[in-house]
Design a protein around this nucleic acid. Structure first.
Lengths: 185, 185
DNA sequence: GGGTGTGCAGACAGGTCTGTCTGTTTTTAT
DNA sequence: ATAAAAACAGACAGACCTGTCTGCACACCC
């Protein structure tokens, strides 16, 4: 097998998403993926590095999906901003969605000195800057403010949608985002 | 001592806020508060019940503080809505603020069948309904939507302010909330 | 066919956690 | 002053965690 690393990461992703990171022990991961413990520790020298890889891949996949959807529209920058809101709503209400991973990680590892917490902060900033960039391209009056406001709304909606699924948080968040965008252009 | 329960809860609150719930063991709580383990288990038959008490008290204190501040203004309902945004910003940027407790608890106990998760959902709904009620009193066109949108913004801001303190999330969230309120009246 | 790399199975060490239990000491009430 | 209640100190059980290590099986390549 060449794709051992991939298999481990896939199983870990499923478990981390469904049960949380700390609640998913290494023993569970190896049992679930049918590999030996030594193999896991060969590809990921520590559980922390496995978690980092999980966070990195989750993030990469999200941006890849978003960029692909946005670019296929070939719309002008303003339309991209509008389109974005719909895509985020879609992302959040997907049944496979379990909350923003870096957000969950930052709560499970609250010590700012812990590498996973630092990395979560990094990923959170990444999302904010991504949204600020789009806001800038769209010609928002204060793109940094609008970008961070969108990040706030998306993360809040992800949280509430996870706590009370089906309460309409995602669609109301989309509406709120559109209101802010219109007020900012 | 009559206030053993109170002392335990105070120490637990400090630890839960600063280091997280799962990271604060019973042994740490008793060492930090100088009581015996049996005493803790007398007042709180399990750690879960201590956590529940912590969540309940945090919530109570928040609403008490908010109501007191809001009522002292004796303003009309619309002004209360505006005032609320400033108070929440103030609350979030207080140095003692460590994130919304029920939100943190729901991440640390992600299993929906776990009593702490259920209770977190309850407290999250409580906040949403509190905000919906104020929106209704203020005469919002769609108070349930506005209330939930405010909850989304406040929780998102709390999260980002905790992840990147000093990034201006709280004040931008306040601005966003005011924009939504004006658009909804 | 022998050597090398890869993976499996599982024991083990050393730490942490919650919760119980046994004594001893201190406080409180009558 | 004496009896009862409460708190202390800390050992202990039983479970879980990460990470290491040993021994064995299989495959591949020269």
């Amino acid at each position: 097998m060449k794709n051992m690393r991939e298999k481990i990461l896939d199983v870990a992703t499923l478990l981390f998403d469904a049960r949380g990171i700390n609640a998913s022990g290494v023993d569970t991961i190896i049992a679930e993926s049918g590999i030996a413990k030594a193999t896991l520790y060969k590809y990921f020298p520590s559980k922390n590095q496995l978690i980092i890889a999980y966070l990195r891949e989750k993030s990469d996949r999200f941006y890849a999906w978003l960029n692909q959807k946005l670019q296929s529209r070939k719309a002008n920058p303003k339309e991209i901003l509008y389109e974005l809101c719909g895509l985020v709503e879609q992302w959040i209400t997907t049944p496979e969605f379990h909350g923003l991973p870096f957000h969950i990680a930052s709560v499970e590892f609250p010590d700012p000195a812990h590498p996973i917490n630092s990395y979560s902060v990094e990923l959170s900033n990444e999302l904010q800057h991504y949204l600020m960039r789009i806001a800038r391209l769209a010609g928002a009056r204060d793109p940094d403010t609008l970008g961070q406001q969108l990040a706030i709304i998306f993360e809040g909606a992800a949280l509430i949608e996870r706590l009370s699924p089906g309460s309409g948080a995602a669609s109301r968040a989309k509406k709120a985002a559109l209101t802010l965008i219109e007020a900012s252009l």
